[in-house]
Design a protein around this nucleic acid. Structure first.
Lengths: 227, 227
DNA sequence: TGCTTTCGTAACAATTTTGTAATCAATTTG
DNA sequence: CAAATTGATTACAAAATTGTTACGAAAGCA
């Protein structure tokens, strides 16, 4: 239930339905962004390139399937699931013709929607990036990016490797020797005593400037552990 | 009608439904083969590799979804649409979990089935959209052309391959080694340190002369990523 | 052949990262 | 409690990495 994190966009003008959908999909582990109209969606797609669109047909302003057709025209191939209150043949046909991949009629079964999402993502070949988590820390190892409390934080390579080592071994106390081997790979004798301290200090400042979260707990005379 | 002639296999034990389906699909131009049970289907698939399976869940002998699951296990990725008389949540879930792509409950609308077939063939079709995009960059891989902000930009072969590699892996950090393999294909030891830097530098100047867009973000000690 | 384009190499500049050292603070030990 | 040991913090400079520019060899083209 935790390793889905594909990015999904929902366009739905009825706020309570939108909220409900966001809740259910987020619970499944998807990374959901909701919109009340098609406005701003194109810009968002440029920036984020989501894996799937869930689009209400009946939107204010631009009609849902029109929006999808226009996205298709400018080259987007993102999978689309349409939602609709209506159930007319002509509507259905229009939805598919304009580039929809699936179609659900309201009121729909949430379980079914989730299954259809999964099937469509599988068929369209979405690669799930593996992410490591610890508390509010998310390490995306493919993008080599760190998010703390949903906010992106830039790290240097050394800092990244260091944090990665801790998160990967989050249940253990990491001894100084182990960290030296794992992060620095330095077998020379010229490894300064305080190098690790300084590195951890810098890392702490970046991921928790106020110092209130206490990610790193020093184990006196041994090393550190996450806490 | 048109010339669709994709090969479709239908497995359905109720003969009149099977005939009806065969009739409608053939009329649309598909090349249809019907089976009354899962028997012999595997051998047929080996010989013909159809583009789509339409499978009744409720078959004599082997259950439809079981058959699909076993096909998936031995490596077949053919798209599947399940048909069923039942409408239970658990059935639905089982169907998708075992590798179904779509699910229709009898009695179904023929028009809808045809539309869903088309959508599924489109999505699973080998011919993917030949356009890759990232922000305001569009790579038309068929024409081997680049558009930045709707304006055409000429690239050299090397530059194109480089940019293509980045856009294709737009949410990953690309390590220098990976770029060397992917773009230069050079496994020699004589690969100069700065070759990548200079190539990226040239590419940057072409697609973003003013340097304000910051397409390429160096990841210190690792490589680059799009940003 | 002669012209043009492409692209690797080299040199140097600019930038970022990271180790070191010095000092201060905290913890343990006797 | 005092001494000793270890960790935290800070500032600085060396080291490592990337950016930029120019040159010329190689490849493509007329």
């Amino acid at each position: 239930m935790e390793k889905k994190n594909a990015e999904i966009v929902i366009i739905e003008d009825e706020e309570d339905i939108l909220e409900l959908l966001e809740y259910h999909l987020a619970k499944e582990g998807y990374d959901v962004t909701g919109f009340l109209s098609t406005e701003n969606v194109e810009r968002f797609m440029e920036e984020e390139s989501p894996a799937l669109l869930i689009v209400d047909r009946n939107l204010p302003g631009v009609e849902g399937s029109e929006f999808v057709a226009s996205m298709r025209e400018i080259g987007y191939d993102t999978p689309v699931i349409f939602l609709t209150a209506k159930d007319k043949d002509s509507e259905l046909e229009e939805g598919f013709k304009r580039g929809g991949d699936d179609y659900l009629t309201k009121p729909f079964n949430t379980k079914e929607l989730l299954l259809r999402i999964e099937a469509l993502l599988r068929r369209s070949g979405v690669k799930q990036s593996e992410k490591l988590r610890y508390r509010d820390i998310i390490l995306d190892n493919q993008a080599r990016e760190l998010y703390v409390d949903k906010k992106k934080v830039d790290l240097t390579n050394l800092e990244y490797k260091l944090l990665y080592t801790f998160v990967k071994n989050s249940h253990q106390t990491l001894q100084r020797d182990f960290l030296r081997d794992e992060v620095w790979g330095d077998d020379s004798d010229h490894f300064h005593d305080k190098t690790i301290n300084v590195a951890i200090n810098r890392l702490k400042k970046k991921i928790d400037p106020s110092g209130e979260k206490g990610y790193f707990v020093p184990i006196w005379g041994v090393g550190y552990k996450l806490g």
